[in-house]
């Protein structure tokens, strides 16, 4: 596998990778497969008739990981992929995705990834997806991920969805159905700056008894960027759901935070909390009194908040 300095930097940023990952992996660059490795328990195969892969995790697979980062380093290109993850019963795996864009030209560079997860009975998945944009070109860096999750009975999934910085436009759609006794935790972190726009739309259906979900979103909007966050929980039975969205707004940015709870059963326990506020001057002063400059203090507060 040949990686240049830009590729290496992007991989490190979006997937904490220094070279070839351990375990199964599939690295895609500019619409083509760069490198792939399946293991005994995790098989990666190309889809027939459309771009993307199927990741098949054997039942009972424990403590294994699969990395599927995407690199986009060409201008004027839209990369569309459909990936399906079938995680077998009783498995416990880490899936690291993410997309890094380096746009060197004036055309837009866009990645639209559609990820579908079927998490079988009793399986546990931690899914990490980080997005990052950079590049000396003037072309836009666009990311439109869609994540569809089905949690079978007793399954557990933790989705860590992060937009680090440098993405001009993003529209993230996350849809989930949570089965009996299953639990979903969505942790979203979002930073926008400049004139960037970001929409995140999450809808979770708690349709089976004892299903539960937590959506924990934190975001920072700097400069004149705009964010819209919509999270909808639907409880149709004895279930529990909670949405917490907490945002820091700076400069002339705009944030809309719209948590929505829909209950169609008196047994559903759904709660939400939302807060938007600026960085507290007291926090900045405290950190300055510990020796940080004002800029370092603000950066530290944002880094901690979005961690």
């Amino acid at each position: 596998m040949k990686l240049n300095a830009i590729d290496e930097r992007l991989l490190e940023t979006i997937a904490d990778l220094h070279g070839v990952p351990q375990g199964a992996y599939n690295i895609r660059k500019n619409g083509d497969l760069l490198s792939r490795l399946s293991t005994q328990n995790i098989e990666i195969v190309s889809k027939d008739g459309k771009p993307g892969i199927d990741v098949l995790v054997r039942p009972g697979t424990k403590n294994e990981s699969v990395h599927i980062p995407v690199l986009l380093t060409a201008s004027g290109m839209t990369d569309l992929v459909y990936n399906t993850f079938d995680v077998g019963e009783g498995s416990d795996v880490l899936i690291v995705a993410g997309c890094g864009i380096h746009n060197p030209g004036s055309g837009a560079a866009e990645h639209d990834g559609i990820h579908e997860f079927i998490i079988r009975r009793g399986a546990r998945v931690r899914y990490v997806e980080k997005h990052y944009g950079e590049g000396e070109g003037t072309g836009e860096r666009i990311l439109n991920p869609k994540t569809i999750v089905t949690l079978e009975d007793g399954a557990y999934a933790e989705l860590e969805l992060v937009q680090i910085r440098g993405v001009d436009s993003s529209r993230r759609i996350t849809e989930a159905r949570v089965g009996r006794g299953a639990k979903l935790v969505i942790s979203e972190r979002l930073l926008t700056h400049g004139r960037q726009v970001a929409d995140s739309i999450i809808s979770v259906a708690l349709e089976a008894p004892e299903a539960s979900a937590e959506v924990l979103a934190r975001s920072v909007a700097q400069d004149s960027s705009r964010q819209v966050f919509r999270a909808s929980l639907t409880g149709a039975t004895k279930c529990r759901g909670h949405v917490a969205c907490d945002s820091i707004i700076m400069d002339s940015a705009e944030i809309r935070s719209l948590p929505e709870l829909i209950a169609t059963s008196p047994e559903a326990e759904l709660t939400h909390e939302a807060a938007i506020g600026k960085i507290s001057g007291e926090q900045v002063i405290k950190l300055m009194s510990l020796g940080l400059t004002e800029k370092q203090a603000i950066d530290t507060i944002i880094t901690g908040f979005l961690r």
């Binding site: 934190r218 907490d246 007291e282 405290k286 009194s289 510990l290 507060i301 901690g304 908040f305």
Partner: peptide
């Protein structure tokens, strides 16, 4: 404030500041 801190002046606030996201360990490291 930063200069004074670097000169060796420290101030434990009357009303401690709360930080979302910063851990106890982070603050002590800083």
């Amino acid at each position: 404030i930063t200069d004074r801190a670097m000169m060796g002046i420290g101030y434990a606030f009357q009303n401690p500041v709360r930080f979302r996201g910063l851990r106890v360990r982070d603050l002590l490291n800083i």
